[in-house]
Each structure stands twice: as C-alpha cells, then as structure tokens.
C-alpha cells in the first residue's frame, strides 16, 4: 500500500530550486490542497517573477506567468473572465511586498475571490540575495552589506498586519515551514485558503515564512534555526483575519 506519494497536481518536471530551499515544500502543500479539493482541472495558477518564476512548469493546472508584482492583477482578470475557475497566485516577498504592493492591497480591497500564496524569505533570491521589503532590521544582504539600517532604508513591511486593516480581505494567516508541526499548520491554512475560494468566500492570503539557505549563507538546518530565532519573533505566526469565523462567532 502506498501511504505517501507525489501529489497529482505536481508535474514530473524536476524542480530547479537550491538544495534546502523550502519552495519545494510549499509547492507540495499547494498541490496537496488542489488534490484534496479535487480542483486541479479547474484551477489557473499565476506564477510571478523571482525564484518561483518557473512554477508554471511544476503545477499540473493551467498556468500564466505574470510580470513582476502584477500577479494579483492578472489573477483578477482570469477570475473575472471565468469566475467558475479557481485562481491562485504564487509570489515571493519582492514581488508581492515591493513592486506589487499596489496590486496586492487593491486585489484585497476589492475582495477578489482568489487565493494568494505569499512566500516570505526576507531576501531577493533569484537575483542573488539583495535586501527585500521583508528583510529584517540589521540583516546583511548584498544591497545592505552593513546590515539593514532602518534609519536610512526604513522598516520591513508586515503584509498580514497591513492587510488585516483592509475590509475586503477575508482570510489572512501567517505560517512557517521550519518544522513538521509548522508545516502541518501551513498545510491546513493553504487548504482553507483554497476551500474559501471554492465556497466563494473572497480574498485569502497565506504568508509562508520560508528559508533561503543559499543567499542567507547558511546550511539548510541552520537556515531553519535562523527562521525560528529571527523571523518568527518579528513576523508572529497566526490568523490575522478570518472574516467568516468572526461572523460565526457573533
């Protein structure tokens, strides 16, 4: 009996991600959600610009590759064209929280019935380790070689906290993929974000704290520790908004 196999919603393409990178885990969680909800055949994924740009090769559903930061606008177009389709974006921190901030905030404000998977690893991975909008204060990167100085370049952007103030957003949760327990929680959140869309519950965004061993200059194991010790205290895990749960409680 097979007890653990590759999700059907992943193709057989070989992932290009660096050893120890957690994109692979997050891809798997998304694919498991598509499998469990049995929606791969009606789903359209929007890949963004960054390390996950080639996500279009890895998910078995129809895919569009969007310009840097524009995935929520492209998703809006796809969803408005065919509202019966399930539409998700898969975006990194530079894409979603820097160049695409307007598209992120306004797709939430409109309450677009889409699902956003936001991978936050506090660095620009694909271009080789530059400071991200989510890089931590003091974090050393290629473009903050003396550490992120908040006096001159400002503070990190906390997307879940920010979007929790937007009335149009339905479900916002921050998760991490640094441990089995957190991965299981991430799975539940991603599944719920897709189920929300199937049920027409509007805008869901899951922020996934992720590692970048290559550009952080750490081993995969040390990278998990760094995430736990540095990112989680700054970006606390948890549900930031759940409109339907709040209404059910009233």
């Amino acid at each position: 009996m097979v007890v653990f196999e590759k999700p059907k919603a992943l193709t057989d393409a070989v992932l290009h991600y660096c050893p120890g990178c957690t994109h692979g885990i997050i891809h798997r969680l998304v694919a498991e959600a598509l499998d469990e909800l049995k929606i791969t055949g009606e789903t359209i994924g929007i890949a963004s610009v960054g390390c996950s740009v080639m996500a279009y090769n890895y998910f078995a559903c129809d895919m569009v590759q969007a310009a840097h930061g524009r995935a929520p606008a492209v998703a809006t177009g796809v969803k408005r064209a065919n509202p019966e389709n399930i539409v998700f974006t898969y975006q990194g921190d530079g894409d979603l929280a820097a160049i695409g901030t307007a598209e992120t905030v306004h797709s939430a404000a409109r309450g677009e019935n889409i699902t956003i998977i936001f991978v936050n690893n506090a660095i620009y991975g694909m271009t080789g380790g530059q400071m991200a909008p989510t890089s931590l204060p003091g974090q050393i990167t290629q473009t903050s070689p003396y550490g992120r100085n908040v006096e001159t370049v400002g503070y990190p952007v906390k997307i879940c906290e920010m979007l929790s103030q937007v009335d149009g957003a339905s479900y916002l949760e921050r998760v991490a993929v640094d441990s089995v327990r957190n991965i299981n929680n991430a799975k539940k959140a991603i599944l719920k974000a897709f189920r929300n869309q199937v049920e027409g519950k509007g805008f869901s965004l899951i922020e996934v704290l992720s590692t970048c061993p290559t550009n952080w200059g750490l081993s995969p194991e040390k990278a998990q520790e760094w995430l736990r010790e540095n990112m989680i205290p700054y970006y606390p895990l948890g549900v930031y908004k759940d409109k339907y749960a709040e209404e059910a409680d009233k």
């Binding site: 359209i44 606008a73 177009g77 064209a81």
Partner: peptide
C-alpha cells in the same frame, strides 16, 4: 495586467 488575465482566459 487585468487585460492580460482576461485575454489569457
């Protein structure tokens, strides 16, 4: 970019 989405669909 919304035009791109609609057209892609």
């Amino acid at each position: 970019n919304m035009v791109i989405g609609v057209s892609a669909a």
